[in-house]
Each structure stands twice: as structure tokens, then as C-alpha cells.
């Protein structure tokens, strides 16, 4: 017990462990959302080596679509989630067609600048139409909290975990056991060779954007449910953090994005618990800079040597 001497006399160990477990539950819930968004970054980067800057904004569009589906069309949660995912998938395909495809053979920096432009475009159009002030996301699940030996977990956190795990299982199946999934992996390895094998690379890229965007939209709707508020700028920070999560796990590696998302979520919640919450945005970038310097390939990645 010497290690826990800082607790002071007479204090119980149990509350500390309880607190840690509680933060872990909160962190994993938040991290699942980062993981969903990170998957889109990692898949797109794996296939066309582009940081799709607009990904966070697609997540925002997903949240707004879910909001309108529930609020205006009075859809129940699950159909609203599906609608948001479909709309985001279409938007993802559209963005790729119009903005990224014409630049496929230009420099990576040109593509990155375009992606920044697309992100700003979506954000500012949304600001114009929906106004900057936050909206309250409809209360689809009346808040209920369960007490598990002093650690509280609420029904929204369970929902986030359930939906995330389900979507990741579906993704795993699609990537590993379907033709389009095999094609995706082939294009990620070597797009020229894949083309020679008769794979329609354009179709695969479109499909990748569709899946990635749909997952981001799911994340957006879940965040709306979790925090009860959405606004047009909501995508920027989670988008960047999800990107950090993707890099942390090893960009281009799907399980890496999941792991990275969870680590990011837990780290952020812990920082908020230990310091003032204003520091939390800096933590994500500190993690990014450290990981890029120490292990640029990420936790699960392998180093690639540049050919001279």
C-alpha cells in the first residue's frame, strides 16, 4: 500500500479505483466515437494517401442530418442513424468525384490544400444556413444511469458502445470477406497492380469514401445523442483528434484506428479529470507531435524506408 500513500490516512483505496474505472468508461465511450471517425481517415489515407481534411465536416453533416431526421421527420433513432449514414456516404462520394479525383495525379500538397478548401466550404456553408449557435439534439433516449459497484454507466454510453462495436464488426466483415473489401485491400497495397488485375480503382475509391463518411456520420449522430448539442463547427476538433487517433494507431491500418481512437478518448477524459478541461485540445496535438517524432508509423504500423 506504500504506493498509494498519497491518499492520506484513513482514506479508502476503493474511491480512487472507482474513479479510475469511471473515467475509463467515459473515455471508452468518447474514444469509440473518435474510432468511428478515425476509420474514415485511415481508410482514405490507406488508399489515396490523402488526409481528407473534410472528414470532420462530414461527421458534422451526419449529426445535422440525424437531427433533422428525428426533429422534422420524426424518425426513430435507428432509421435516423441509417439516413444520416446514407446522406454522408453520398456526400463523401460527391466530394471525391468533384474535388479529389481531378487531382489524383498532382502533388499531395495540392490535394491537401483542396481538402482544406472543401472542409472550409462545408463548414462555412453550414454556418450560413444553420447559424453558429448550437442546437439541442432531440432527447431520443431518456437518460438512465446504471450503478455497477459504484461505477456509473448510462444508456447513451451503452448505445455508443453497441453501435460502434456493431459497425466495426460489419466493417471487418466487409473488408475481409467481400469482393469489394478484397479490392480495397488490393488498391491500398498497389493501385497500379490492382488496375492491371481488372479492379475498377475509381469504384473502389468511391466505395471507400462512402464507407468512411457513413462511419463518420454515425459518430456524429452518436455525439449528438451523447452531448445533446450540435453546431456547424462541431466537426473541426473531433475531426483533427480522430486524425491524431488514426496516426497514433498507424495510418492505413484499420484496427490501429480503433485502438488509436480508444487511447485518445481515454487520454482526453483523464486529462480533463486531472486538470482544467481547457487543456484537453492541446493534449491531442501533443500526443500527435510525440508519436510522429518517436514512432511515426504509429503503434501498429511498420516503418517504410524511402527509396533513394
Amino acid at each position: 500500500m506504500a504506493a498509494l500513500a498519497f491518499l492520506g490516512e484513513g482514506e479508502d483505496v476503493a474511491p480512487v479505483i472507482q474513479e479510475i474505472l469511471q473515467q475509463l468508461v467515459n473515455g471508452i465511450s468518447l474514444g469509440s466515437i473518435y474510432a468511428l471517425v478515425a476509420l474514415g481517415y485511415t481508410m482514405v489515407y490507406g488508399i489515396i494517401k490523402l488526409i481528407n481534411f473534410a472528414h470532420g465536416d462530414i461527421y458534422m453533416i451526419g449529426a445535422f442530418t440525424g437531427y433533422f431526421a428525428i426533429k422534422i421527420f420524426h424518425l426513430p433513432f435507428l432509421p435516423a442513424l441509417v439516413v444520416a449514414m446514407v446522406v454522408a456516404a453520398c456526400l463523401g462520394i460527391l466530394i471525391e468525384r468533384l474535388a479529389y479525383r481531378p487531382l489524383r495525379n498532382s502533388t499531395r500538397i495540392a490535394a491537401l490544400i483542396t481538402a482544406i478548401g472543401v472542409s472550409f466550404l462545408i463548414q462555412n456553408v453550414a454556418l450560413l444556413i444553420w447559424q453558429p449557435n448550437p442546437r439541442a439534439f432531440p432527447d431520443v433516449f431518456p437518460f438512465r444511469s446504471y450503478d455497477l459497484w459504484g461505477v456509473y454507466i448510462d444508456n447513451r454510453q451503452l448505445l455508443i458502445l453497441g453501435v460502434s462495436v456493431l459497425l466495426m464488426i460489419v466493417l471487418h466483415y466487409v473488408v475481409h470477406y467481400t469482393n469489394i473489401g478484397r479490392a480495397m485491400r488490393a488498391v491500398a497495397l498497389d493501385d497500379d497492380a490492382a488496375r492491371l488485375m481488372g479492379i475498377d480503382v475509381d469504384k473502389v475509391i468511391s466505395f471507400t469514401f462512402a464507407i468512411g463518411s457513413a462511419l463518420a456520420a454515425a459518430g456524429g449522430v452518436l455525439v449528438g445523442v451523447y452531448y445533446n448539442r450540435i453546431d456547424p463547427m462541431m466537426g473541426t476538433m473531433p475531426g483533427l483528434k480522430a486524425f491524431v487517433a488514426a496516426v497514433l494507431g498507424g495510418i492505413g491500418i484499420i484496427p490501429g484506428a480503433m485502438l488509436g481512437g480508444l487511447v485518445m478518448g481515454v487520454a482526453e477524459v483523464m486529462v480533463v479529470a486531472l486538470t482544467e478541461s481547457t487543456w484537453k485540445d492541446a493534449v491531442a496535438f501533443a500526443i500527435l507531435i510525440i508519436i510522429l517524432l518517436v514512432r511515426p508509423a504509429g503503434i501498429m504500423g511498420r516503418r517504410v524506408r524511402e527509396k533513394v
Binding site: 490523402l50 488526409i51 483533427l240 496516426v247 492541446a282 496535438f285 501533443a286 500527435l288 507531435i289
Partner: peptide, 23 residues
């Protein structure tokens, strides 16, 4: 340290630096 990174990674690292300054 960051200029060892290339292209888009450097872009994100410098973006991160800007955010850290702000925070």
C-alpha cells in the same frame, strides 16, 4: 524536431503546434 516529417505529416504537426499555442 518536426521538420524531419514530410509533406502532409508536417502540415498536421504544425497545425497542432498552432493549436497548442492557442490553448
Amino acid at each position: 524536431p518536426t521538420l524531419r516529417l514530410r509533406g502532409d505529416y508536417l502540415a498536421i504537426a504544425t497545425l497542432g503546434f498552432g493549436e497548442i499555442v492557442r490553448v
